[in-house]
């Protein structure tokens, strides 16, 4: 049952992340928030894999982990290039 408690905390964390994302003064803030949110998504999926006992979800986490960083990299790249085209 503790799992559910953790699920709750994760949910809380996600909401916090969302708040930061909405408020975040500068763009990088938002990007970081998005990145973290992505990580939480992976965590939730992992937790969920345990809950419903289907290890197959792990590959989903793997893919998410890999691609997530690509998104942030794209943002970073873009920010940099906009500064000095």
């Amino acid at each position: 049952v503790a799992m559910l408690f953790v699920l709750g905390t994760l949910a809380l964390a996600m909401i916090g992340c969302l708040i930061r994302l909405l408020l975040g003064p500068t763009l990088p803030d938002r990007v970081v928030a998005l990145d973290l949110l992505g990580m939480f998504a992976v965590a939730v999926i992992a937790l969920f894999a345990i809950l419903i006992g289907r290890p197959v979800l792990l590959s989903v986490c793997l893919i998410m982990g890999l691609i997530l960083f690509l998104g942030t990299a794209a943002f970073a790249l873009f920010l940099e290039r906009r500064a000095r085209p």
Binding site: V56, S59, V60, I63, L66, I67, L70, A73, A74
Partner: peptide
Amino acid sequence: VLLRGHNQPGGGFVGGLLATSAFMLYAM
């Protein structure tokens, strides 16, 4: 992911997308 598509989650589409992101990383 492509090859195990038949039995486990995966398949041509996802494989393709994954490969694209890989090459995009390289492009970046």
